[in-house]
Amino acid sequence: MTLTVTDNDGATDSDQATVTVNAVGGGGGSFTTLFDDFESGWGNWNDGGSDCARYSGSRSYGGSYSIRIRDNSGTASSMTTDAFDASGVSSIDVEFFFYSYSMENGEDFWLQYSSNGGSTWTTVASWARGTHFNNNTFYTATVSINTGNSSNAKVRFRCDASANADHIYIDDVTIRASAGARLAGNSLVELGSIPGSDALAGIDEIAVPQNVTLGQNYPNPFNPRTSIPYEISTDTHVTLNIYDLSGRLVRSLVDEYLAPGKYSVNWNGVDNKGQSVESGVYIYHLTTNEHSITRTMTLLK
């Protein structure tokens, strides 16, 4: 067996790591293991849209950050990997940690696999509130997936709830080749609630921001995508909209009830009609029940 480890940021606590392992998975080929803890960004994963966001707070299992998915808006309620090569192995294991907040009884989320780069998806596992998990509790799960020896594979988590207040937080995701001597099968293990919290609130006071803030987008100027960071200090309804200099609404990025925490949302220079906008200066405006903050950013094409 040949083992090659690459730490993408040169540190031991990297949020993204790749490991190439030869002669595993029963196929005699190789597979690059993917690991992401989201501490420094999205890593190997992609933001599905308005119902997916990178979150910082006590609902993250490891470190500060995780990915929050909500509601049931299809791709917008999903987090999806980049395409990866699984042609050298017959099966992979997906291991991850998750936390549920305010999911109603029977609401669920799915793990899906695509062997054709995301053109079609197959649900390989699903977990429902009240049957498989309860709110305000951490779990770890492992799912084995038959790859079909695809060279253009993708994996995604998709929420299938009913409202913006129904949240699943995904963290510390590892995708690896299944060991050749075993077929892992699926597992789900309860890990307990947030230490020192009650079963309903679950808020780590150290992690809760003290103020509502709207950060400068990065990069700025940008093309074609930028990230907008913001922090919420109390449970509140939040909107984050983009306007042109005439005050016309260009894009609604956030419109939901949020728990305290640090968030970021991406904008790809597309308006609410799915059309690319022109180069120029744009206004982005955050509102909560008690605050209103405005900044500007520049799109250069």
Rank of each mutant, 00 (worst) to 15 (best):
N136A: 06
A184F: 01
S227I: 07
V173R: 08
K154R: 13
V189A: 06
S233H: 11
S178M: 05
N72C: 05
G48F: 04
D160M: 04
F31K: 12
E107I: 04
N116F: 08
D108G: 05
N211A: 15
H285N: 09
G63R: 15
V208R: 15
G269M: 00
C52E: 02
S77C: 07
V254L: 00
V124N: 00
S50C: 03
R248C: 07
S178Q: 05
E107Y: 09
G49F: 03
T2F: 03
G261Y: 10
S197R: 08
I67G: 03
S197Y: 06
T294R: 12
I175W: 08
S233N: 10
Y101G: 01
S87G: 05
T6A: 10
G62K: 13
V24P: 10
G196K: 11
G192H: 12
A161W: 04
Y65V: 07
K262Q: 11
M79E: 08
H167I: 06
D160F: 10
A17G: 13
Y230H: 04
D160H: 08
F96K: 02
R156Q: 11
I175H: 05
L245S: 09
N289Y: 15
A199P: 03
R70Y: 13
S227D: 09
K301T: 15
S264E: 10
A86E: 10
G118L: 11
A86S: 11
L245Y: 14
R68P: 02
